[in-house]
């Protein structure tokens, strides 16, 4: 299996997001496998929540559908274990809101995740101010190699420089830079202030910077990839796969196209 750090040897990297359970559990496993085997360097595996307040309509609908299909945290962890069994070796990051993780139990969640080969976590409603208990639990439950699974630090266009410095100080893996103020979802253009924002982040940290929110087309990915270490694509990925009659081949095409734009 590939460590998170090793995924950044050749940048920019391509990091799609896809929720387990959409449009149903078996198909979502196939889709993620197809993304992994056709160009994704890291995948954000989405855990669904009834009230995803940082997400736009496309991800809201997809995760709602996943819940209707009976997805739960334990079932999502089983799905990840299945992906590893199928030979998916790239880093997998679990992305989900805090409440279902709390309901599962922090230490159990982290130790189960470590056991099945998860490489880190993204929890959008857990800013550094509240991350203490999660990070304490993570320290108690390292993976088999003895590594502590990181909680990926997020930065936003509204984050002031001094706060960026504090947040990035102990950052592990990569920085998730939210490209725009707003929720997830496609945008027509890459924001004009993104290059400035990225250089502000780079002034604070040498950890790789991945950009998410609003990256909708291979052209956007290419433009962002020219200045960032990675591009995160969620809504466009769900849309492409959701509208296809053959989700697995759509996933393959999507990965090839976006990865191709970054080469």
């Amino acid at each position: 299996m590939i460590d998170l750090d090793k995924a950044f040897i050749k940048t920019p990297i391509f990091m799609p997001y896809f929720p387990i359970g959409y449009p149903n559990i078996p198909t979502s496993i196939d889709v993620i496998e197809a993304l992994a085997k056709n160009g994704a360097d890291i995948i954000e595996v989405g855990l669904s929540f009834s009230d995803p307040l940082a997400d736009g309509p496309v991800i809201q609908k997809a995760t709602q559908k996943a819940l209707e299909q009976g997805i739960t945290v334990p079932r999502a962890l089983e799905a990840v274990a299945e992906l590893r069994k199928r030979g998916v070796t790239i880093p997998l990051i679990l992305m989900g809101y805090y409440n279902p993780i709390l309901a599962y139990g922090l230490e159990n969640f982290i130790s189960e995740a470590a056991k099945i080969g998860i490489n880190g976590f993204i929890i959008p409603d857990l800013p550094p101010e509240e991350a203490g208990e999660f990070e304490t639990a993570a320290k108690k439950k390292p993976n088999r190699k003895g590594s502590i699974l990181p909680l990926i630090r997020m930065l936003a266009p509204t984050t002031p420089a001094d706060r960026m410095a504090t947040i990035t100080k102990d950052a592990q893996g990569f920085i998730y830079l939210v490209s725009v103020t707003g929720v997830t979802g496609e945008r027509k253009e890459v924001p004009a202030e993104l290059p400035t924002l990225i250089s502000q982040v780079r002034a604070q940290t040498s950890v790789p910077v991945c950009v998410g929110f609003g990256i909708s087309t291979p052209a956007h990915a290419k433009a962002v990839g020219a200045i960032a270490d990675g591009v995160i694509v969620g809504t466009a990925c769900i849309r492409a796969i959701g509208k296809s009659n053959n989700p697995i081949s759509a996933a393959k095409d999507f990965a090839i196209e976006f990865k191709g734009a970054l080469l």
Partner: peptide
Amino acid sequence: PTKFGPYGGQFVPETLMPAL
């Protein structure tokens, strides 16, 4: 204080933290 005993806090996306 941001909390009332173990309750309260600021569980929001980073974009909103500076506004809070």
